[in-house]
C-alpha cells in the first residue's frame, strides 16, 4: 500500500479534483444566480428562458455534457480556451472545458436551490414590505432576498457536495483527477479494494467538512417563523 502511495501522485490527483470543483463551483454560483433572478423576475420571456435552461440541462446526463463540451466546441469548432500553440493545450483545454461543463450543469441546480429559498419566504412578507411603502427593489433587498438566502443555504450545500463528487466525470475526457488515477492504479496493481477505500476516503475528507459547515450555517442563520 505504501509503495502505491509512493509511486503515484495521489495528492496531485486530488488537487486536480479540488481545482475542478473550486472553479466550476464559482461558475455555477454565478450562472445559477442569474438564472434564479430570471426565474422569479416579472418578465415572462426571462422566466421562460430560465426554465428552459434548467429543464434542459438538468435532464442531460453530466457525462454527455462533459463529452460534448470537449467534442463540440473544442474538436469540431476549434474553440480553444488556451493559447493554441501552448505545449499543454490539449490537457489544459480538457480541464477548462470540463470546468465549463460542470459549471453549466450545476448552475441549473444552484438556480433551483436559490429558488427554493425564495419559496420559503411567505407572500405576507412581501405584502407587509409593500404596505409600509418600500419600493419593489427595497422590498427585495431588505425583506425577501435576505430571507431567501438563508433558506437556500442547506440546498446549496447539497449542490456543492454533489459537484465535488461529480468532478469524477471529467475523467471521461482524460482529466487527471482522482477517479482517473484510481482506475489507473486498480488496473496496474493488485490491491484494488484498499486502493478503492483510499480514494473513497479522500472524497469523504473533501465533502464531509462542507456538509457539516453548511448544516451548521443553515441552522445558525435559519429564519424562525
Amino acid at each position: 500500500m505504501l509503495d502505491i502511495i509512493d509511486k503515484y501522485d495521489i495528492l496531485g490527483a486530488f488537487w486536480m479534483t479540488i481545482r475542478l470543483a473550486f472553479f466550476s463551483a464559482i461558475g455555477a454560483l454565478l450562472i445559477g444566480t442569474v438564472l434564479a433572478v430570471m426565474r422569479v423576475s416579472p418578465v415572462a420571456i426571462l422566466r421562460r428562458l430560465g426554465a428552459f435552461y434548467v429543464n434542459t440541462v438538468r435532464n442531460t446526463p453530466l457525462t454527455l455534457l462533459v463529452f460534448f463540451a470537449i467534442a463540440g466546441p473544442y474538436y469540431i469548432l476549434q474553440i480553444s480556451l488556451t493559447p493554441v500553440n501552448s505545449p499543454t493545450a490539449l490537457v489544459d483545454n480538457g480541464i477548462r472545458w470540463a470546468i465549463v461543463a460542470l459549471a453549466v450543469y450545476h448552475a441549473a441546480f444552484v438556480c433551483e436551490a436559490l429558488r427554493s429559498g425564495v419559496n420559503t419566504v411567505p407572500l405576507g412578507q412581501a405584502e407587509a414590505a409593500r404596505s409600509i411603502g418600500l419600493t419593489f427593489g427595497q422590498s427585495l433587498r431588505e425583506v425577501i432576498l435576505p430571507q431567501a438566502f438563508r433558506g437556500s443555504i442547506a440546498p446549496l450545500g447539497s449542490v456543492l457536495i454533489a459537484l465535488i463528487k461529480n468532478t469524477t466525470v471529467a475523467s471521461v475526457i482524460g482529466v487527471a483527477e482522482a477517479s482517473l488515477l484510481m482506475s489507473e492504479i486498480i488496473e496496474n496493481e493488485t490491491a484494488s479494494v484498499s486502493v478503492f477505500l483510499l480514494f473513497a476516503m479522500g472524497f469523504v475528507i473533501l465533502t464531509l467538512p462542507f456538509g457539516v459547515f453548511f448544516t451548521s450555517l443553515s441552522r445558525r442563520l435559519a429564519v424562525k417563523r
Partner: peptide, 14 residues
C-alpha cells in the same frame, strides 16, 4: 400613508 395590519401579523421574520 396607509397602515395595514394583517390577520397573520407578517412581521419581518429576520
Amino acid at each position: 400613508d396607509v397602515g395595514m395590519v394583517f390577520q397573520s401579523f407578517n412581521l419581518f421574520a429576520h
